[in-house]
Nucleic acid binder design. Structure first.
Length: 258
DNA sequence: TTGTGTTTTATTGCCTCC
DNA sequence: GGAGGCAATAAAACACAA
């Protein structure tokens, strides 16, 4: 509502509507019959005030209350009913605006939370990427470090597994640690491309030794469908010695299954 | 003064309830 | 079927800027 309109005094109202001098006169059906059908009559501020008070008490209008209000305000019961009708419509519109504001506020709060969570997520992601890169760099540096910096655990071959592994070991270790290993074809872990090739056998606990000699199946003389390799295994120390011209280690036999 | 936007009053048509 | 409520709408009343 624009300023000034609802603040119109009774005096001003009476100037605009000089026909009424009392509520009884206002409640005169003949007045409405005399008015041109297009004319609309603004209620006075007093009438509006009373209607508002009544609306606050109860926004629905029972017939009895409608009649009483109409008499009190000098209006047609129909006018009172229409006023309540329109007032309910205005209240509903305002209520929708209030609901919208509440929802919008809630939405803004959620959006803000979402944004900060997303930022945190991005930060964590970049941390993961950074850490992965560091890991890769470290992984590349490993071959340059001592080749056997951890203890070599014996390959767990129990009696049941022995026929499958078909290990033929010429174990030169007095300690009884690893002397042979089977290399699965699914994960080629033996690289033989030169005399100085290294066995990349995880089964040796990371210990890598240069391949001194390769014995083929034919050379081995076996006919069980397996490909045998005679491999010279060296320890870290032995590898270092080998680099210096000495070769200390032991021969063992490995074969591919299948 | 006038054009324009807003508010208020009133009507119409449809729907629900008793 | 009548009474009453509601949504949509018309139109008058009003405020205000240019």
């Amino acid at each position: 509502m624009k300023a000034g309109r609802s603040m119109m005094s009774m005096e001003e109202a009476s100037k605009r509507r000089p026909f009424f001098t009392s509520p009884d006169e206002l409640y005169d059906e003949e007045y409405y019959e005399k008015q041109s059908p297009e004319k609309k009559h603004r209620l006075s501020s007093e009438q509006v005030h009373l209607l508002e008070k009544s609306f606050e008490e109860e926004n629905k209008l029972e017939p009895e209350r409608k009649t009483q209000l109409a008499k009190k305000l000098g209006l047609q019961p129909r006018q009172v009913a229409v006023w309540f009708q329109n007032r309910r419509a205005r209240w509903k519109t305002k209520q929708l605006e209030r609901d919208f504001d509440v929802l919008k506020s809630s939405y803004d709060t959620l959006l803000s939370s979402y944004d900060s969570i997303m930022k945190e997520n991005e930060k964590l992601k970049s941390e993961v990427v950074s850490l992965n890169e560091k890991l890769q760099v470290q992984a590349k540096e490993v071959p340059e470090e001592p080749l056997c910096d951890k203890k070599v655990d014996p390959i767990p071959v129990d009696e049941d597994m022995a026929p499958i592994f078909g290990t033929r070991v010429e174990d030169h270790l007095s300690s009884g640690s690893v002397g042979s290993a089977v290399v699965d074809e699914g994960s080629p872990q033996v690289v033989v491309d030169s005399v100085d090739s290294y066995i990349l056998a995880d089964n040796y606990g990371g210990c890598v030794g240069p391949v001194e000699r390769v014995q083929s199946e034919e050379e081995d003389g076996s006919d069980d469908g397996r490909s045998y390799l005679d491999v010279f295994v060296v320890s870290e120390t032995e590898h270092q010695n080998h680099e210096e011209g000495e070769t200390l280690g032991w021969w063992t036999n490995m074969y591919y299954v299948g």
